[in-house]
């Protein structure tokens, strides 16, 4: 268990680090988009590179932010029943959900997107539009980000099991604080 908890902490540190970088992209993409509009209007200057950079950054936010949101329990739940359950039952639901729902989905998507991304890499796929950006890096992001999500799922799983076996008093210290 100690090894597993260490692993979970290491994953949490990784997710947190990636998440903190992603957070700044939110501001950056807004500034880029506003700048885009102003440059185009004021100076008739623009490029598909800037337009594509917007959705590249948007993709980074949600793809990499997915694991961060999981760590902070920010993925929305239908809590009609969930909220009435005990902490133990909630932990059990999360264990079952992670094993049967999240991990298969994340692993399945890695499996499906890997050849797709590799194919793009092998031909050095570009944007079809003039001045556009290379496509392969953003396609590679897909399997990578679902890998991060699967890792965070593993970390959450470890924390729930540790809670259920009594090795951890709570799986989410910040959440407990909010409740208290």
């Amino acid at each position: 268990m100690r090894f597993l908890l260490g692993l979970s902490r290491a994953i949490d540190v990784l997710t947190e680090g990636v998440g903190r970088l992603v957070v700044w992209l939110v501001l950056l993409v807004a500034l880029l988009s506003a700048g885009n509009a102003i440059l185009r209007y004021g100076f008739s200057y623009s490029s598909n590179a800037y337009l594509e950079a917007q959705w590249y950054m948007f993709s980074l936010i949600f793809l990499l932010g997915g694991a961060y949101a999981l760590k902070h329990n920010a993925h929305v739940r239908i809590d009609l029943l969930y909220d009435r359950f005990s902490r133990r039952t909630q932990a059990w639901i999360d264990v079952v959900g992670t094993v049967l729902f999240l991990l298969p989905m994340a692993l399945g998507l890695i499996y499906l997107s890997w050849p797709w991304a590799m194919n793009s890499l092998s031909i050095r796929e570009m944007s079809p539009d003039v001045g556009g950006l290379p496509r392969w890096p953003i396609k590679l992001l897909v399997p990578f980000s679902f890998g991060l999500l699967a890792l965070q799922g593993l970390s959450e799983l470890i924390k729930r099991i540790a809670f259920l076996t009594g090795a951890l008093p709570s799986w989410s210290p910040e959440e407990e604080e909010e409740v208290a």
């Binding site: 239908i78 009609l80 909220d83 639901i93 959900g97």
Partner: peptide
């Protein structure tokens, strides 16, 4: 059923699909 379990909506939806 999956949604009512209270597990995050995004993954419950994906799980039904899978």
């Amino acid at each position: 059923l999956f949604l009512l379990s209270g597990y995050p909506v995004a993954f419950s939806l994906g799980a039904v699909g899978m």
